[in-house]
Amino acid sequence: MNGERVREAARTWLILALGTAVYAFGIEYFILPNLLMEGGVTGIAVLLQYAAGLPPAITSLAINLPLFVFGWRLLGRGAMVYTIGGTLLLSLFLWLWERTIDAGWIRPFTTKQDFILVVLYAGVTLGAGLGLVFRSGGTTGGVDIIARIVHRWRGWSMGQIILTMDVVILGSALLFIPKEKVLYTLVSVFISSRVIDFIQEGAYAAKAFTIICQNPERLAAAITKELDRGVTLLPAVGGYSGEKRMMVYCVVSRFEIRKLKSLVREHDRQAFIVINDVHDVLGEGFRED
């Protein structure tokens, strides 16, 4: 058991380190050279870079240090370990990428002819990095800590708190960069959010079928035989008729959706089918975590 815990912790820290490295690369390679912005404390650090030439690796850590103290006291050790680790790793990788670019080993991506290309790649890179960070259970600190504290103190929605702070940060950027760059940033943030959702929900997306039909036992047997998928029979009661019957519940991959629909229709043309999105499916026949 101890060996499993060590391997799981090592895997978590590896994903966290990879995520912060990718996110820091997006900041140094796409955001800063093109005068774009970012939300949260990283956005404040980027803004200080534009306004006073202060390196984000130092300012992001300096802003987060007092938040660590409040977060540790109010949220507890368990909630802060990976957040502190993610923040420290982010500052480290921001510094490393900055030194790498300054040394000329990597040339930052800049263009004036097709700026939308910068926005697309910036959004994908930042989203991929943050998605890995969140998937590991960590954060990059800053606004996330403030949102948790205010949510616990006042009960306000964490999403609304983060959105409000990001709006203030992006609004402040208008004092230092052209408004067109702020608008481009909004596109990048949108793309980033979609990529974060994709990574967190998992690339192993599937569909869950809930089926009400005649003779559900026979359908379950057919699904097991034809698709080699596990099936669960759930007890149900008709709200109008009061009739007791069994529902069929089955999860299949995206490539088996049409085949399962056809199988159900062959079994019962009057069957009632509800299909739901399922994300990050673990278990036999899908992904083993």
Score class of each variant (00 low, 15 high):
Y184D: 15
Y204M: 15
W97H: 05
F286Q: 06
T59L: 08
F109T: 02
D114G: 03
R229N: 05
T185N: 14
G3P: 02
P178E: 13
L94P: 06
R245K: 15
G242D: 12
V119G: 05
Q160S: 11
G53Y: 03
L74I: 14
E284L: 13
T100C: 01
G123V: 12
M158Q: 11
V167T: 12
W97M: 02
D280Y: 08
R7I: 03
P216R: 12
F93V: 05
A205I: 15
K259N: 00
I273R: 08
A205C: 04
H151Q: 11
V189K: 03
L75H: 13
E288M: 13
A62T: 12
I101M: 14
G155W: 14
V118Q: 02
L132Q: 08
R269G: 06
K225S: 03
T42G: 02
G19I: 05
R77C: 11
R148V: 10
L126R: 06
A220G: 13
E256Q: 02
V251R: 00
A57Y: 10
M1I: 10
V22I: 13
E4K: 10
G43D: 04
I145K: 04
A222C: 01
F134A: 04
Q160T: 14
L16Y: 08
Y249W: 11
P33S: 01
I31C: 07
D289Q: 08
A236R: 01
V133C: 08
A173G: 12
K181F: 14
D114V: 10
G43I: 14
L132W: 09
S262G: 08
C213M: 04
G137N: 05
V143G: 00
I146Q: 00
Q200G: 15
A57Q: 10
E201V: 10
D289E: 14
A203T: 11
F93S: 08
A205M: 12
K225H: 03
G131I: 05
G127P: 03
Y82C: 12
